[in-house]
Each structure stands twice: as structure tokens, then as C-alpha cells.
Amino acid sequence: MVKALSDTYLTFKTIFTGMGITFRHLFTKSVTVQYPVQRDVLPERVRLKLHVNIDDCIGCRLCERACPVECIDIGTIKSTDDVDLGETSTGHKKKLWVDKFDIDMAKCCYCELCVHPCPTDCITMVEEYEYSVYDRNDLIFPFSDMTPEQIEEANRKLEEEAEAKSRKKEEAMLAKKKKAEAQAAGGEADGDKPKDAASGGSTEAGGSAETGGEEAGGEGAGTEKSGTGKSDAEASGDGDADAEKAARRAEREARRAARRAEREAKKKSE
């Protein structure tokens, strides 16, 4: 009986306490933000949408590598010697055409891992959050400003240049061979000369293939990162890859040929 009474008392007491609290809240100011009309001031670091300032992009693919969900898709074309792509606002030299820079915001997990490695700070999170669409494909945002014609031209030029270079190299090689043969024939044991020539040729051929990567990482981060950048450029998969491979192959062959010539020359001299 006593318990029943105390329970009843407790029930009413706690119910009235609760009702007092809710009644107080009935007249406190509400916390609602009436969204389309009122908007919260968003903090500076807010992560809402990825944006790429394509003018500053050097096509280093660090962001693509950093993405855990593979929502960034980048394609680059090596620029030819006759084109100057200029510099980014951070002073990096641009060596690659970026013919494709698609970000699929439907896949994006907003982790911001891509933003941090960027050497030129061209990929950023921006304060834009009303971009719902009806078709999921509309969430793929292309950032490259190259037209198909420009891409085609860049590819063509690259091919032409690669062709021209390999032709040049062959000629150089032929010349070297001839020279070496001539030297060997001449009986002079001057091994340094052909070596010089060969390495000179190799830098010419392979240099431009690597510089893109070097530019990408070299200035932006420490040694480790530069290594990544370099390997990136070397391992890049798309349009310019074949050209690069071809260039490297040509370089390797040239070096091998030079060494062979050297060995033969030595043998002969002995």
C-alpha cells in the first residue's frame, strides 16, 4: 500500500517534472534553420563538392592515386616540344595536356584524400551542395577544357614527334655505328667518344618522357613523393603511355647499341 502510494506520487511527480520541461521548451526559441530561405554559414573547410581548377593541373595523377573509391579519372597527353603549356599559378611547369579529368561525385566519399597530395592545389572542395540530378551519369563532372579536336591534334602531334624522334635516333645511331666502325677501323682505342654520343642521344630521347613526372612531384613534396610522381608518370595508362613506351624503348635500344659498339670497338682494339 505504501509502495503503491509512493509509486503513484513518484509517477505524478516525474510526469509533471517532464511536462514542466516540455512546457518550457514550448516557448524557447526553435533551432530550425528554414533551409531554402535561411542558410547556415558553412565553415571554411567544409567538404561538399570537388572542384578542379584545370588551368593549374599538371596531370600528375596524385589525386587519382589517392582516391579510395576510384572516382577520379584522368587522361593526359604528353605535349610536344613546339607547344608551351605555360606555368601554373604556383609556378609549376606544365608538360602534359590533360585531355580528361572526370570526377564522379556519385562515387565520391568526400574523404578529401585527393586534395592533400596535389602539388599545385588545383583540386579543392568547394562550398556547393545543391547538385542533385535525376540521372546518376549527370554526377560525373568533366573538368578538362580540351575539345575533341584539340585532343586529336595533341595526339597527332605527339605521334609525329615520336616518329620524328625515333627517326632521328635511328639516324644518330646509324651515324654512331658508322663512326664507331670507322674508329674501329682506324685502330684508335678511343672508347670515350662513342659513349658520350650515345648517352647524349639517350637524354634527348627519354628526357621529355620523364620530366613530366619529375615536375609533378619534385617540387611539391619530399623525396618519397617525388618517387611516386615519377613512377606515376611512367606507369600512366592512357593515350600518352604508348608514346612514352616507344620513346623509352628507343632510348634503351640506343643505349644497348652504343654499348655493343663500344664492346666491339674494345675487342677489336685488343
Binding site: F23, H25, T28, K29, S30, V31, T32, Q34
Partner: peptide
Amino acid sequence: KVAGHIQDRLGPM
């Protein structure tokens, strides 16, 4: 409205 204001919201507006 009562629910909204008790819960520091506004309810339908």
C-alpha cells in the same frame, strides 16, 4: 505545431 515547438522545432511552415 505543438510537437514542433516542444521539440524546439517549428513544425510545418
